[in-house]
Write a protein that binds this DNA or RNA. Structure first.
Length: 516
RNA sequence: GGCUCCGUAGCUCAAUUGGCAGAGCAGUUGACUCUUAAUCAAUAGGUUGCAGGUUCGAGUCCUGCCGGAGUCACCA
């Protein structure tokens, strides 16, 4: 064992051994539980409301972690906590086995240990519903103490906390301790689960089929991002961790599934930020016989539905902004949005050189030498995106950076694509999907021209995808959204790391050992 | 990857111009048969992230490294 106990841990180890010397199993295999803490309290209150006579007739066995301990000599109180909440245990020396009470009084059973308590429900003189304990059993010893946080329940029912476990690095590296101690952290991840559940409910009810596609892919695609590379030993095959689901999902439309979705993990070998994690949860759906205007409507309904399910309201708060997710959202073309913000009508500058000149004249910083569409997108990101607080759909994107979207009728510049923004953050991306295999092949080849091999945004040509499309792909609308970002919005968390249980971090530095 | 800031006891934080490393919580010992941030008394606890350097003297100043945060670059 490489564990080097600190002072507090050494004391707990000694206590563990002392308990074992007394024949007490500190990690017994068997547990009995008749009530959660919430059920025990509810059962008592139901009986109490009926008749105060029978109040002490509710017998319970509850289990949980000791989160508060007050040994007052011959009587002791503790709060134990399970997932449903806390309940107070009331222990009195004459009401239980002396040997067991001694173990409590000597603090061999202590804060953070798991225990099982059997007794009857009662109300203390101070009025708190409690278990009058006759039997107490240690369920699991905590060899390391959790960070100390004390709670005070105020008269209005709110809980005030004293002390904190707030060091972000420690909270991320030891999420278990964060969850065990910080009530708010647990709430965030409960809501995250509700978000994902609500997304599934919405899509299932709208006739979508949930599917799973490969995470390890021989050819990556569907997005402009750098992939992770790995290797299959037996097959001697290089594989990529997927950067999107797009191409695999659309193949299923060829196969006859008319509406599919997947919620899963994407991996992008890029920088991290408050809204980028190395691996993140993506939702993509594709539906036959609809176009991007239908997808816009679905998007609005879906996001509003999730907000209602999770928060009971379409009003949300994020980074000091308040906004309403209820439809309809503002919709504006990319061309108009950029023109309003910068005065530049990029259509009037159909080549990179003239557009760069116009951008420079407007005094907007930019990197030269990038493709025309990237420069247009840069204008959006710099001048428009931060102002989009209320949910906003920006639609009709440049063709040369959108290899999977169908072009707008009688328009050589734009494709039927939209992105939606909330609170200044890009949330998702959707289009009327390209289904002409000849056009798709040309787009792949164009992308090969626009981005040379080895470029970060290289989009490899996927022959099998073209083969699938040649069998005939129904016209369809597709959608992708960063689920983590939606969770950020609905829980008002500033960083994506606060909505991912185990965010990606560098390896923990090992403490140097003094060499002998 | 660039720049800025941060790293002190288990947790949260102090430490004046470079001058004896400190507090609260929890821990340990004791008192207490209805407490609830329990209280009271006593007590212990440190590789100041790591490695060097400057100095009579470094938590403090300098260099490098490790880790984190922010920001820029990058990022559908």
């Amino acid at each position: 064992m490489t564990w080097e106990p600190n002072r507090l841990e050494a004391e707990r180890l000694e206590k563990t051994q002392a308990l074992e010397t007394r024949g007490i199993d500190c990690f017994p295999p068997r547990v009995e539980r008749t009530h959660t803490t919430a059920e025990a309290i509810a059962a008592f209150e139901a009986v109490e409301a009926d008749s105060s006579e029978a109040a002490e007739s509710v017998e319970v066995t509850v289990c949980g972690r000791i989160r508060r301990l007050n040994i007052k000599g011959k009587v002791s109180f503790m709060h134990i906590e399970d997932e449903t909440g806390r309940v107070q245990l009331f222990l009195r020396v004459n009401e239980m086995d002396d040997a067991v009470y001694d173990v409590v009084r000597e603090k061999l059973i202590e804060m953070d240990d798991f225990v099982q308590a059997t007794g009857v429900m009662m109300r203390t003189q101070a009025g708190e519903v409690s278990v009058r304990v006759f039997e107490l059993k240690l369920l699991a010893k905590a060899l390391s103490p959790l960070p100390v946080i004390k709670q005070q329940k105020l008269d209005d029912g709110t809980i005030k906390e004293y002390g904190e476990f707030s060091d972000v690095e420690s909270r991320y590296r030891q999420r278990y301790a964060d969850l065990a101690v910080n009530h708010d952290t647990r709430q965030v991840f409960l809501k995250r689960a509700k978000v994902i559940s609500a997304l599934r409910t919405f899509l299932d009810e709208h006739g979508f089929l949930e599917v799973e596609t490969p995470i390890l892919q021989p050819i990556y695609g569907g997005a402009a991002a750098r992939p992770f590379v790995t290797h299959h030993n037996q097959l001697d095959q290089d594989l990529f961790l997927r950067i999107s689901f797009e191409l695999y999902l659309k193949r299923l439309l060829v196969g006859g599934f008319d509406a599919v979705y997947e919620i899963g993990r994407d991996f992008r070998n890029e920088g991290v930020s408050f809204k980028h994690n190395t691996e993140f949860t993506m939702l993509e759906f594709y539906k036959a016989y609809i176009d991007y205007r239908d997808v816009m409507a679905l998007t609005e309904q879906m996001v509003a539905f999730v907000a209602e399910q999770v928060n009971g309201s379409t009003i949300a708060h994020f980074r000091g902004h308040t906004f309403n997710l209820a439809p309809p959202w503002k919709r504006i073309t990319m061309r108009s949005a950029i023109q309003e913000a910068t005065g530049i009508d990029y259509v009037a500058y159909p080549d990179v050189a003239s557009l760069e000149t116009a951008v420079a004249q407007a005094g907007i910083e930019h990197k030269s030498g990038q493709p025309w569409g990237k420069l247009v997108e840069h204008l959006l990101g710099e001048c428009v995106e931060p102002t989009l607080i209320e949910p906003t759909i920006i639609y009709d994107y440049p063709r040369d950076i959108s290899p999977f979207a169908k072009r707008v009728d009688y328009d050589d510049v734009h494709v039927e694509r939209f992105e939606f923004y909330i609170a200044g953050m890009e949330m998702g991306n959707a289009f009327t999907e390209l289904n002409d295999p000849r056009d798709q092949e040309a787009r792949f080849l164009d992308m090969g021209e626009t981005f040379k091999a080895g470029d970060e945004d290289e989009t490899p040509l996927d022959e099998d995808y073209l083969r699938a499309m040649r069998y005939g792909m129904p016209p369809n609308g597709g959608f992708g959204m960063g689920v983590d970002r939606l969770v950020m919005l609905l829980t008002d968390q500033d960083s994506i790391r606060d909505v991912i249980l185990y965010p990606h971090l560098r390896p923990e530095p090992k403490r140097e050992q003094a060499s002998p």
